[in-house]
């Protein structure tokens, strides 16, 4: 990076660190912070969408749809995350490839399952064996997003399902008395009012999601914990220009600071959202807001 970095052995400490912290390997570490943040930024809304779908399905009037919603919530919540990540992602990937295989290679005569191997024709591979590395990485990343969204969506569905039931029934009855249809009641009365009940549960999920990102490495996505372990490990002078002892403690300390800082920022943001959502609601917090604003007692 800097031009004085050609011979690190001779450098004074400060410059040595300047060089050390800007090696290509460290750049990978810094970039992985971006990967994790991007994952969170995409996963959180997707999971919320899955959760909303699941919760709506679980209270649908159509019986099969209700079964589907309840089965989704119960199944995914019951399976350990790590088992889900190891099994489900591989199964999902193979399902995609199997479908492409059926469409693209109809005259393939060998079995797809050969002992332990899962063999599809080259054209059905996801992504294609010939595509560059970044395509593989992006594909792996989105597979991770999808898996995270399905897992956290189930928890979110349960939270939202509870929140929908927490909306005072009098509100629904009033809406019906005004002649609103079932759909109108749902979208105009229930959904706007449920968020304030859902937020404490959802904020818990968000915190858990932040900390769940090391599961990424199971899928081959190099996350911050992987890099911290890799960079912190003893660096032998034979294999690096920057030998050092076991520095994992310092790298994990940096991660600790990152996670704590991130949690704090999240808390501040969630507090603001809660204040906004309570505005005008028939809850204790909403009532308190109304009084401080000078409304009638």
């Amino acid at each position: 990076m800097f031009n004085f970095c050609t011979d690190p052995d001779t450098l004074p400490q400060l410059q040595w660190f300047a060089c050390y912290l800007t090696t290509g390997k460290h750049m990978g570490f810094y970039a992985s912070f971006g990967t994790v943040l991007l994952l969170l930024a995409i996963t959180a809304p997707t999971a919320l969408l899955f959760g909303f779908g699941g919760a709506s399905a679980a209270r649908a009037r159509l019986l099969p749809l209700r079964w589907f919603g309840k089965a989704y919530i119960a199944l995914v919540r019951g399976v350990p995350d790590i088992a889900f990540f190891l099994f489900f992602v591989i199964a999902l990937d193979q399902a995609f490839e199997w479908m492409r295989h059926q469409v693209k290679c109809p005259d393939w005569d060998q079995p797809v399952r050969q002992g332990n191997d899962f063999v599809v024709c080259a054209a059905a591979k996801m992504p294609l064996g010939t595509s560059p590395q970044w395509v593989h990485e992006t594909y792996g990343f989105f597979l991770a997003v999808l898996t995270f969204a399905i897992v956290f969506g189930a928890f979110a569905a349960n939270v939202l399902y509870g929140a929908m039931r927490a909306v005072p029934y009098a509100q629904i009855e009033t809406a019906e008395a005004y002649g609103m249809s079932h759909r109108q009641t749902f979208w105009r009365i229930l959904v706007p009012q449920m968020w304030v009940f859902a937020l404490p549960g959802l904020s818990n999920l968000w915190m858990v999601l932040i900390k769940a990102t090391p599961l990424l490495f199971l899928l081959g996505v190099e996350d911050i914990v992987y890099w911290a372990r890799e960079l912190g490990g003893t660096a032998n002078p034979r294999f690096t220009d920057y030998p050092h002892g076991d520095w994992r403690m310092w790298y994990f300390l940096a991660l600790l600071v990152f996670y704590l800082g991130f949690t704090r920022i999240s808390e501040l943001a969630l507090d603001r959202i809660m204040r906004r959502l309570s505005h005008g609601q028939a809850t204790a917090a909403g009532e308190a807001q109304r009084r401080t604003a000078g409304g009638p007692p």
Partner: peptide
């Protein structure tokens, strides 16, 4: 033109490891 993907651990010097360039 076949691309072969080589999987390694990257944590077992001198056999395979991640160098300073990453």
């Amino acid at each position: 033109a076949d691309t072969v993907r080589m999987g390694t651990e990257g944590a077992y010097p001198p056999w395979n490891f991640i160098n300073d360039k990453g």
